[in-house]
Design a protein around this nucleic acid. Structure first.
Lengths: 346, 346
DNA sequence: CTGAAAGCGCTAACAG
DNA sequence: CTGTTAGCGCTTTCAG
């Protein structure tokens, strides 16, 4: 039987350097107050022994974990059909590792998982949580908030959490939608329709609001409801064409639906952008560039969003332990700008 | 200043239940050997106090973490352009949480990150690692393997790790490719071309090999090199058309490239599938169904792949601590079957 | 500025 | 079957 490799402990390093454990600890943790001759000797011993601190032991006393949970609720929808998730995660990961924090990923499937997540969060394994609250009726966000762990949401959550509100980072969905519609108007289009996303997500609601900001007073029949899937985009487009054969522009709440709309438009012999101009939202890499014609769309910097979420949380954690639940003192929502990307569809 | 909520300890539960800490520990950990009257009293105390064990303290003594690292090397390529990553992660997550293990995600960007990952792994924060080794020259896999942590790879790694080889899970890339080409042949096509993926990834190599298995002796000019991106698919298709104007079928190593090929074919006035039949690989959700015409492709069960990776690793970990490095005694590679999905392009 | 000592909360022998 | 007793490896007062 192979002898398990015994990892060196603080004790071992101390012995080798001829100092006490306390001194080694100080050097390892960068707390000043160890004079140069000694410090160097310790560093050498650490090097020679290949010493790596035992996190468990450290956490036990510091009550810090240098780890944050990333919780993604995914009722089988979008999340896994598109590459957003990965982008966001990358942004988060970069920021976290830059600050020596670990990323613990919690994916929730159904309601049963909520209990598990709640327990995990309450279990004090992580210092904070980053949460993607996708649906309006999702009980998870509130549940987490109540767990008393510093939390930052991705996307504006539906509830605002009382005192001071919750921290979140979101794209400027409303502003982006306004830009899209104005662009269409600027092209001289008069009958601009809108295909909404799933209205139980704030992103869809906000994009719809943006459309209405610009199209105040327009025929409500110019709006058809979708749910962010390509199929719903096709369905909505047919509906719209039925009600308003004369429409000359469509703003879809995401690229997937815009792609569906494009197909239906072609099917009905409408030329894009000549007869009908189309604008999407997201600038989803493999989609927007590959449609026929390539899609004009509203881009959001999804990776930056992740990065900011992490930064916000880390700042919260740094604050010498803001007594849990007092997070509201800080500016709560961070809204990232969007950019209109012009391709050929509008 | 809000008093930090003091989480109850084993001690507290013991006191409340009027038993010793050891007894509580036994009940909490499900080790039998506590008679019913007592056990129930303990459970109640746990409930009343809302006791949750402190993982750090537990790990300190058990040397177990019930956590595994998932390491994804992504030199800015595919990984984040497609939804695979998320799928795989979901499979892993499901299996892991079913066994009460946490998922620590490590994303590596460049070589600098390797050191960090190495340190983390050596730091003994996790019990094992799941690694996606994407590129042939990636030093990471070997580095990890040497860290002596039980490891399972996603996708056949390029090196085989010596004694007994490494554990990995992969799709039957070669078999899937053979099926694709045979399908084309079965359609009566005679001049079947192939667009390869990035040949520094084993998946691309294996698909290419599968093509050659069936097309042994075919004109090498029927093969054009791509790199899994849509642009490379277009380029390769042009090349192919230039060299072999008479080709009547194309097997592309992934759907993204197939989509690119489709566009070039249309541009050149070739009808699909009438003039040229096209088959892709992956069955990437938003792509394969949305192309014009919808793509016939080889599907791999990516989520299952993730699940199996986790299962394999967990089995390794359960083995009452297989002395690190002895993992080779087990069957090393697990190959998942693929399915040909027929749509309209072939 | 450095060392000694006291735990952090839990599990795992070992007794009883 | 249950309780007692040692630590796991580290940080952190508190003395010196």
């Amino acid at each position: 039987m192979t002898e398990t490799v015994q990892r060196p402990t603080l004790e071992a390093v101390a012995a080798r350097a001829g100092v006490s454990r306390a001194t080694v600890s100080r050097v390892v943790n960068g707390s000043d107050g160890v004079r140069e001759p000694l410090a160097e000797r310790v560093r050498q011993a650490v090097e020679e022994l290949g010493y790596v601190p035992n996190q468990a032991a450290r956490s036990l006393v510091t009550r810090r974990h240098d780890a944050v949970a990333v919780i993604v609720a995914e009722p089988e929808t979008r999340v896994f059909a598109d590459p957003f998730f990965a982008r966001q995660l990358r942004g988060i990961s970069k920021e976290l590792t830059a600050h020596d924090n670990q990323l613990v990923l919690l994916l929730t499937e159904d309601r049963d998982d909520h209990a598990r997540v709640g327990r995990y969060l309450a279990g004090g394994h992580v210092d904070g949580a980053l949460v993607f609250s996708l649906h309006i009726d999702d009980p998870l966000p509130e549940l987490i908030q109540r767990a008393g762990l510093p939390t930052v949401f991705g996307g504006r959550p539906y509830f605002n959490g009382g005192r001071g509100g919750v921290s979140y980072v979101d794209s400027d969905n409303r502003g982006g939608a306004r830009d899209a519609v104005r662009h269409l108007l600027g092209l001289g289009r008069r009958h601009v329709a809108h295909i909404t996303g799933a209205l139980d997500q704030t992103s869809a609601v906000d994009r719809h609001d943006g459309y209405r900001d610009v199209m105040a007073g327009a025929d409500p029949g110019l709006v058809a409801q979708g749910d962010f899937t390509p199929a719903s985009g096709e369905r909505a487009m047919r509906e719209l064409l039925g009600r308003h054969p004369g429409l000359d522009a469509v703003f879809a709440a995401n690229d997937l639906m815009a792609a569906g709309a494009l197909r239906v438009l072609r099917e009905h012999g409408r030329r894009v952008p000549d007869d009908v101009a189309v604008v999407g939202f997201d600038d989803m890499p493999p989609i927007a560039e590959q449609t026929e014609p390539p899609l004009t769309t509203v881009r959001q910097d999804i990776e930056e969003m992740g990065r900011l979420m992490a930064r916000l949380l880390l700042r919260d954690l740094d604050g010498t332990g803001t007594p849990e639940g007092t997070a509201g003192a800080r500016p709560a929502g961070l809204i990232l700008p969007t950019t209109l990307i012009r391709r050929s569809s509008a």
